[in-house]
Amino acid sequence: MDLENQKRVKEFAEQYGKDDVVVLIGAAEGEAAGLAAETVTLGDPTYAGPLAGVSLGLSVYHICEPGIKAEIDETVYDEQISMMEMVLDVDDIIAEMTAVRDQL
């Protein structure tokens, strides 16, 4: 995850508390989604950014996960996300995201 984004997520978590922050990921690949999810939960696996060694343990989901999709207005989802949903390997993304959450 981009170092600046790591810093911003860290600041939000400190400002609002970890229970009131949900991170929504839009990465196009399972591996990239998993890495981003790992960064905001267990810490930066590349040890390069502000979240290196910092386990925020935030709630984290991908926009294409069924639980999130159900929360969004159907028309908006169709306009904004449905094209990508057709393109992405959603099962792989769900598996990666679940694997990270299972480690918490």
Partner: peptide, 20 residues
């Protein structure tokens, strides 16, 4: 590097748009 196949992703998006 985990950034995927960028042209392929673009082509899939254009194709998905053609489906829509």
């Amino acid at each position: 590097a985990g950034a995927g196949d960028v042209p392929e992703s673009n082509y899939k998006m254009i194709a998905a748009l053609a489906v829509k």
